[in-house]
Simulated assay, not measured.
Amino acid sequence: MLDLYSIPLKGDPLTLCGGNVGDAGTAESCALVTPIPGVDGAYAVGDTKREGQQVRFTERELLNLKDWLNNRFGGVAA
């Protein structure tokens, strides 16, 4: 099994913002998504509020998570 955490990331992450505006409108959430080099369909996902902390997933793991979220919460994950 490949250890996705052993592979150094390259390049800037894609930043996706929106959603959580917090109580005062100052806590916007941004997800950072970076493809993991050399592994098709594998990504590092982080949060701008927790810089340097990330989790890494294969595409299959992300799809399984999406399916689980849809089953658990009634189709909220696109």
Results as ranks from 00 to 15, higher is better:
6 S>Y: 03
6 S>G: 11
6 S>W: 08
7 I>G: 05
7 I>L: 08
7 I>C: 11
7 I>F: 08
7 I>T: 10
7 I>S: 07
8 P>I: 13
8 P>R: 13
8 P>M: 12
8 P>H: 11
9 L>V: 11
9 L>G: 06
9 L>W: 07
9 L>P: 03
10 K>P: 02
10 K>Y: 15
10 K>C: 12
10 K>I: 15
10 K>M: 15
10 K>F: 14
11 G>S: 10
11 G>Y: 11
11 G>C: 06
11 G>Q: 11
11 G>H: 09
11 G>M: 08
12 D>N: 15
12 D>P: 01
12 D>L: 13
12 D>G: 04
12 D>V: 08
13 P>F: 07
13 P>M: 05
13 P>W: 01
13 P>K: 02
13 P>G: 09
13 P>R: 03
13 P>I: 11
13 P>V: 09
13 P>Q: 05
13 P>E: 10
14 L>W: 03
14 L>I: 14
14 L>G: 01
15 T>N: 06
15 T>Q: 07
15 T>V: 15
15 T>L: 09
15 T>S: 08
16 L>G: 01
16 L>T: 12
16 L>Y: 11
16 L>R: 06
16 L>K: 04
16 L>A: 14
17 C>V: 00
17 C>F: 00
17 C>P: 00
18 G>W: 00
18 G>P: 01
18 G>A: 00
18 G>S: 00
18 G>M: 00
19 G>K: 00
19 G>W: 02
19 G>T: 04
19 G>D: 05
19 G>F: 03
20 N>L: 13
20 N>M: 10
20 N>A: 13
20 N>K: 12
20 N>V: 15
20 N>Q: 10
21 V>Q: 07
21 V>C: 05
21 V>M: 10
21 V>K: 10
21 V>W: 13
21 V>T: 14
21 V>Y: 13
21 V>N: 08
21 V>F: 12
21 V>A: 08
22 G>P: 01
22 G>W: 01
22 G>E: 02
22 G>C: 03
22 G>I: 05
22 G>Y: 03
23 D>G: 13
23 D>A: 12
24 A>Y: 13
24 A>T: 11
24 A>S: 10
24 A>E: 08
24 A>L: 10
24 A>Q: 09
25 G>C: 01
25 G>K: 00
25 G>H: 01
25 G>T: 03
25 G>F: 01
26 T>P: 00
26 T>R: 04
26 T>S: 06
26 T>F: 06
26 T>Y: 09
26 T>N: 09
27 A>H: 05
27 A>R: 04
27 A>K: 03
27 A>Y: 06
27 A>V: 07
27 A>M: 05
27 A>F: 04
27 A>N: 09
28 E>N: 07
28 E>Y: 03
29 S>A: 13
29 S>W: 06
29 S>V: 07
30 C>N: 02
30 C>S: 04
31 A>P: 00
31 A>I: 14
31 A>T: 14
31 A>E: 12
31 A>Y: 12
31 A>S: 14
31 A>G: 04
32 L>Y: 11
32 L>F: 10
32 L>H: 11
32 L>C: 07
32 L>K: 08
33 V>R: 01
33 V>S: 02
33 V>I: 15
33 V>A: 11
33 V>G: 04
34 T>V: 04
34 T>Y: 01
34 T>K: 07
34 T>N: 15
34 T>L: 07
34 T>P: 00
34 T>W: 09
34 T>S: 15
35 P>M: 12
35 P>T: 13
35 P>L: 09
35 P>S: 10
35 P>H: 07
